[in-house]
Design a binder for these strands. Structure first.
Length: 569
DNA sequence: CCCTGAAGGGGATGGATGTT
DNA sequence: AACATCCATCCCCTTCAGGG
């Protein structure tokens, strides 16, 4: 018996002589390949999977038999002539799903991730998916990422009948998990680390995005670092590497590098991680792809925003150094203001991310300022005063108000987390800084109400962040009468397909603020660094085009870890 | 119709691995 | 260590298409 049969012999179920080419392939003039990936052997998961499966199907068919007798037509799929090990499992990744996911990606995600060419990707699906494990992994990881988008429906499932939101959610998340597992399994079989391609980098980025969305931040960071490391192995940080490749690929590669650049910086801020990528190559050109002008302009704005958050800032942020100054911080705030033109030349979707990121980054700089004791109540530069976050909140609300809800929702949990970060900072300011309320046309508390209202209305985060924000507010501002925003719409379930949502009329469970123990800032204002040292001096949300990282960071570090709802963890 | 060869279903066998 | 379970290989056999 041969150790591994070649792909053709496996498919033909004939004895394989081994070797290259094997006797059968040689006789049949076939290309003899050994691409098939052996599956892991031995039992996995719960015991007696097959038996329980059989039992379950028998139970179901027995029940059906009573009512009607119909020929079973559910086994006519999956006739693709692939070796069984590489064969797509149509239950998990059907053609329909691939098409649906690609369509969704280019309709909703492309403006924030303009790193794939639609035609090329479709060609890859048609030609390469069965031939190349790299291509298969890329497409599968894209589909997994689409599956965790709040607005994405599960392709191929009848929407409506018998689908309640829980089914849909768990269906989508189960699908996403299977797809992720599939990618990781297949990747083990190829030496993508020693011989990475552009696809490897893209796949790692999508894996990061998936785990980010699933709130699994160790895995997320691992894959982000994998993406940046592979990018460096491929040489993406060197300008000359963009000359030799095919023009379309070169364009997408350049954009990918900059997307990684932005993403890494946002994540570094949120999670106190170091940077690996720097601005070493030319920026993308807005005019190189017809129709992409606006999108790339928006993309350039994002790059501009994150560019100042270099090793120096991150070093200070992570307390690896301490040589900052008032002037430098004030200049950084100025840079953030200058990074954007008065009128954004971008899509609305991007504008949502850009303005939120800008205000969020200002909040980060402000936090660094206060942590290092550089703020003063009398500074002429408002960015160096204690009340600055209230100004930030005001701007943010003004910027966001003009945008359609959808433009905000597309960014998923990431954007909501940024909003949450800013709101938390504002809460702390209101709690700790004596405010002369006459200065503000609208009271700062009103901004908090607006944040609550906004977050509760956005799909994809309300149920995770709203209770946290409520808890934070009631802990720090007990005087603020139950800060329930007026006209709160029922929080729509984050993952309910929009078509299906009219059917699931049950208002999503309003999560009550759990009895969180938030350590309140108790020190006096005479020592501002103490006051705010436990307000996320680092851990806030960053906005990432992928959605921004997370909550826990924005919460005082001493706070116990919170189970949000256990569904995804 | 028969002959031939390919396809592929069924299943024996055995290796690998998780569970007890 | 014994056992259960899953997976891969490949033999055996039936089916079927194409040529005569």
């Amino acid at each position: 018996m041969v150790r591994t049969a070649c792909d053709a012999c496996h498919r033909r179920k004939v004895r394989c002589s081994g070797g290259q080419p094997c006797a059968n392939c040689s006789q049949a003039t076939l290309t003899c390949t050994y691409h098939a990936v052996p599956q892991k052997k031995g039992p996995k998961g719960s015991r007696a999977k097959v038996i329980s499966e059989l039992r379950e199907t028998q139970r179901q068919t027995n029940r059906h038999k009573i009512r009607s007798y119909s020929p079973d037509s559910s086994f006519d799929f999956n006739t693709s002539p692939l070796s069984p090990m590489r064969r797509r499992n149509p239950d998990v990744l059907s053609q329909q799903m691939i098409d649906g996911c690609i369509e969704f990606f280019f309709r909703h995600m492309y403006p924030t991730m303009p790193i794939l060419h639609k035609g090329r990707l479709q060609e890859k699906v048609a030609r390469e998916i069965d031939q190349s494990i790299e291509a298969y992994c890329l497409i599968t990881s894209i589909c997994a990422f689409m599956m965790i988008q709040p607005r994405m429906s599960l392709p191929g499932r009848p929407v409506g009948v018998r689908t309640n939101s829980d089914d849909l959610v768990s269906g989508k998340f189960t699908t996403a998990s299977s797809l992720l597992e599939e990618v990781l399994r297949l990747r083990k079989a190829i030496d993508y680390i020693e011989n990475p391609t552009l696809e490897s980098v893209q796949t790692s980025l999508f894996l990061f995005a998936c785990y980010f969305g699933l709130d699994k931040h160790n895995k997320a960071w691992y894959h982000l670092r994998e993406a940046t490391t592979l990018a460096q192995i491929v040489g993406m940080q060197d300008e000359p590497s963009y000359l030799s490749t095919d023009p379309v690929e070169s364009i997408m590669k350049r954009r990918l590098y900059w997307l990684l650049f932005i993403t890494e910086r946002a994540y570094a801020l949120q999670r106190h991680h170091p940077l690996t990528l720097h601005a070493t190559i030319e920026l993308p050109n807005p005019d190189e792809v017809p129709g992409d002008r606006q999108i790339i302009n928006g993309f350039l704005h994002m790059i501009n925003l994150f560019r100042p958050f270099d090793d120096t800032f991150i070093g200070l942020w992570n307390k690896a150094r301490n040589d900052c100054s008032t002037a430098w911080l004030a200049q950084l705030q100025q840079q953030l203001s200058d990074a954007l033109p008065p009128k954004l030349n971008s899509t609305e979707t991007q504008a949502a991310d850009i303005v939120t990121s800008q205000q969020w980054l200002r909040t980060m700089v402000w936090q660094l300022s206060i942590t290092n004791g550089y703020l003063s109540s009398t500074s002429a530069d408002s960015s160096m005063t204690f009340k600055y976050p209230i100004e930030i909140a005001k701007h943010l609300m003004a910027d966001v108000r003009g945008l359609p809800q959808q433009a905000l929702e597309v960014h998923g949990i990431g954007l909501i987390e940024k909003l949450f970060d800013v709101a938390c900072t504002v809460t702390d300011v209101i709690a700790c800084v004596p405010l002369d309320s006459s200065i503000f046309e609208i009271g700062p508390l009103e901004y908090l109400n607006q944040f609550l209202s906004l977050i509760s209305n956005l799909r994809g985060g309300g149920s995770r962040f709203l209770p946290l924000l409520r808890a934070k507010i009631s802990e720090n501002l007990p005087s603020m009468a139950t800060p329930v925003p007026k006209a709160v719409m029922p929080i729509k379930d984050e993952y309910v397909d929009e078509i299906a949502s009219p059917l699931s009329t049950k208002p999503a469970p309003l999560v009550h603020p759990s009895p969180l123990v938030i350590r309140t800032a108790t020190a006096s204002l005479s020592d501002p660094s103490l006051v705010f040292s436990d307000i996320s001096p680092g851990g806030s949300n960053a906005s990432t085009p992928l959605g921004t990282p997370t909550v826990a960071a924005a919460i005082p570090h001493s706070m116990p870890r919170i189970q949000f709802d256990g569904r995804y963890g």
